[in-house]
């Protein structure tokens, strides 16, 4: 059944687009609720927003039929249209994000509220997707994030980044970061990594330039996690909490 879903969607797009929109009512509801959770819309507006999205989709149907090129799954493509419909409505209203809602679970990190766990799991999925987008840089970036947050570096972290990494260098860095020594300064942490970067990339970068490279990406990760318009309020500290769970996914199963 699922295997046919995309074909059915495409057929309906051609033959009965109104039925297609009916099929996507659940998806519209999920997306609108996500924006309500983020504070973009009020819960009481749910029905109105869904109605707005439906009207917008009906209006855009001819354009969707013309522009959908069949390269992506239709469910993803339509979700993007629904997303933009919500964002346009928000921009039109020029509403301010509800910052209070954005403080979310990170206000009380010790609580075991199930919602908090779900939010963390969601944000870790998003964080994983963000890091994937750095593609060829992602393994170096992961190493730098571990250095930033003083998370122990493993042999496989280094080999994923540089498969030819000399064994002796691996041992040195692994043992130097194994203790989660939070007394290290950033400069000292990146000084541990500097010789390896210069060997792997055949450069002569300073430890500070590597730290700055990583810092720029941390800022971009935070921007992406928070969204535009902002739907979260992550900062360096909350990113650190996410990173710890990111590298220890078993914690999520507890």
């Amino acid at each position: 059944m699922n295997d046919l879903r995309n074909s059915v969607d495409i057929d309906l797009l051609r033959t009965d687009p109104h039925k297609l929109i009916l099929r996507y009512q659940e998806t519209i509801g999920i997306i609108v609720k996500a924006y309500i959770r983020s504070g973009m819309f009020r819960a009481a507006e749910f029905e109105d927003i869904v109605q707005h999205v439906n009207e917008d989709l009906l209006e855009k149907l001819p354009r969707i039929r013309r522009q959908y090129n069949g390269m992506s799954l239709f469910r993803t493509y339509l979700s993007n249209i629904i997303r933009h419909s919500c964002l346009s409505l928000n921009a039109k209203r020029q509403s301010e994000p509800v910052i209070l809602d954005l403080e979310r679970s990170y206000i009380s990190p010790d609580s075991e509220v199930p919602e908090r766990q779900l939010l963390i799991e969601h944000d870790i999925l998003v964080l994983r997707a963000i890091i994937e987008q750095f593609h060829t840089e992602r393994f170096k970036l992961l190493l730098c994030l571990k250095l930033f947050y003083r998370i122990p570096i493993t042999r496989s972290d280094l080999l994923q980044w540089w498969p030819e990494c000399p064994g002796s260098e691996i041992d040195t860095l692994v043992s130097a970061t194994a203790t989660e020594d939070r007394k290290l300064t950033d400069k000292e942490a990146f000084a541990l990594f500097q010789p390896l970067v210069n060997m792997a990339e055949k450069t002569s970068s300073s430890a500070d330039s590597i730290r700055r490279w990583a810092d720029q990406r941390v800022l971009r990760i935070l921007d992406l996690l928070n969204g535009s318009p902002p739907t979260s309020a992550h900062n360096r500290e909350t990113l650190g909490i996410l990173m710890e769970d990111f590298f220890a996914p078993f914690l999520l199963k507890r």
Binding site: D3, S72, S79, R83, L125, A129, Q133, R220, L224
Partner: peptide, 26 residues
């Protein structure tokens, strides 16, 4: 960064959606 924002924004909405039984991708 702008396109990363578009990708991340859409992914964030679909993060919990199950794509494992999607079948052949076009």
């Amino acid at each position: 960064p702008e396109c990363q924002g578009e990708i991340t924004g859409l992914f964030s909405l679909l993060a919990e959606e199950d794509y494992s039984k999607t079948g052949p991708h076009p």
